[in-house]
Amino acid sequence: MSAGIRLEGVGKEFPSRGGAAPFAALAGVDLDVAAGEFVALVGPSGCGKSTLLDLVGGFTRPTSGSITVGGRPITGPGLDRGLVFQQYALLPWRTALANVELGLEATRLPRRQRRAVAREYLELVGLTGAEDRYPHQLSGGMRQRVAIARSLAFDPEVLLMDEPFAALDAQTRETLQGELLRIWDRTGKTVVFITHGIDEAVLLGQRVAVMTARPGRITAVLDVPLPMHRRQGDVRSDPEFARLRHQVWELLQEEAPPVAADAPAERPAEPLREVVGVG
């Protein structure tokens, strides 16, 4: 099962220290993700991608606007949404299998069945045989596979991924990108995939939403008319891919903010080329 996500005029402000005006991390964000669609969200560091995902995840509430999943407004975290983080967030004292089972422990599934379902999902992510290993005995790629299995096991309607492959080496990342597409194809989930890599966004998304900072906004949404089979293999040499890639790059350039004097202290604005140039 999958459901669509709708964001309407979503804004998020954080109180700032010292009585200054609140800091607007997001302003006027509109986005419609159809059920079963794969949308990649690309933008420079600090533009509010994680903030947006926190809102959809139900961890924080928007200052303005509304967010619905499958037509229902969000009231908090819930099993209709599965999250995958860059840092895997696996429990180090649980085996791979037990970590996947964790995702089922808030459901009504009896224990015996939980185990069976967890095995099934570990198989889906290609980890059969690693069930009894602890996270520290797994490579980064394998850990992220466990995390993905955990977030899929309870059969959420949408999968929200925050730079899930950013901590992996290039080769592992490429493998997991392919795997993710295969899994998406098989499960038909709605996926929102956050990245700061242009290549990754174009490679994975059916559409690419481009975000810019200060305040965080979605400035363009591009269709990526690359069929599944063209995405597998050496898609980077595909002229269509190169064209789209350049288009996103230009969008990010255009919207690059002027050198801001009021940049928040914690996250200085970085030159865009470095942040999003290489995927």
């Binding site: 961890f59 975290p77 599965g82």
Partner: peptide, 13 residues
């Protein structure tokens, strides 16, 4: 680890 707590909350606990 705050992230562990967050991810557990996302799992419906």
């Amino acid at each position: 680890d705050h992230l562990l707590v967050k991810s557990a909350r996302s799992l419906g606990f």
